[in-house]
Structure formats: C-alpha cells, structure tokens
Amino acid sequence: MIERNANALAVSGVMLNGNATALLEAGRGLLRASEKAADLRIDLSAVTETDASALAVVFAWLRTGKENGVALRIAGLPASMVSQAKLYGVFEALPLA
C-alpha cells in the first residue's frame, strides 16, 4: 500500500513481485500529481517484506520523480533492500534521507 502524507510517500506492507506493478503505478500517479520542485521522501519504514522487484519499483519512482521535477529521498530503507542494493551494486545510487 502507498499513500501521500504531507511531504512523503508512505509505503507499507510487502513489496514483492506480485504487487510490484500496482505499487509502481500508484506511486507514479502520486508523483505526477505532486507539485514541481517538491521535495518528497519515500518512507519505506513500514515495509515488512521485499524482493528484488522492490528495488526496481523504487528506481522507477526515482525516474518518474526526476521527469516530473520532484526531488525524492528514501527513508527507512529495510535491511533486506539494503542487502539487495549492495549485492546488485546500486546502493550508492539510492538518494537516502
């Protein structure tokens, strides 16, 4: 699940292959509706389970934000995503809050 809270997109529950497309599209919709030059956090602190698709979704949101003039920072990155990002060599590319 994803929702907009003030200056954050708050994600909760699981981020797995089975719901990746729905999360991707929901997040893109929220980002496209955001004001240009907005600074938003992607708050992942309530995410309970991830797989590699979670990283793909986050990177797609980062691209959508950039395309729409919305600066994004990632907060509350779950340990599983940290491990996956380091394994795939993309950890340094994540704009952490």
Rank of each mutant, 00 (worst) to 15 (best):
4 R>P: 06
8 A>H: 03
11 V>G: 01
11 V>R: 01
13 G>D: 13
14 V>L: 13
14 V>Y: 11
16 L>I: 12
18 G>E: 15
24 L>F: 07
25 E>P: 05
27 G>M: 05
29 G>Q: 12
30 L>I: 05
32 R>D: 13
33 A>R: 03
34 S>C: 11
34 S>W: 00
35 E>C: 09
36 K>L: 13
38 A>R: 00
39 D>P: 05
39 D>T: 02
39 D>K: 03
40 L>F: 05
43 D>Y: 00
44 L>K: 02
44 L>M: 10
45 S>H: 07
47 V>M: 02
47 V>G: 03
48 T>E: 15
49 E>A: 15
53 S>P: 07
54 A>V: 03
54 A>E: 06
54 A>D: 07
55 L>G: 08
56 A>I: 09
56 A>Q: 15
57 V>I: 10
61 W>I: 04
61 W>M: 07
62 L>A: 01
63 R>T: 12
64 T>F: 09
67 E>K: 09
67 E>G: 05
68 N>R: 02
68 N>W: 06
70 V>R: 06
72 L>K: 02
72 L>S: 02
72 L>F: 03
73 R>T: 13
74 I>L: 14
74 I>D: 03
75 A>D: 10
75 A>K: 00
76 G>C: 06
77 L>W: 01
77 L>H: 00
79 A>N: 14
80 S>K: 05
80 S>G: 13
81 M>W: 04
82 V>D: 14
82 V>H: 06
82 V>C: 07
83 S>F: 11
85 A>N: 04
86 K>T: 09
87 L>S: 11
87 L>P: 03
87 L>F: 13
88 Y>K: 04
89 G>L: 09
89 G>Y: 06
91 F>H: 13
92 E>Q: 14
93 A>E: 11
94 L>A: 06
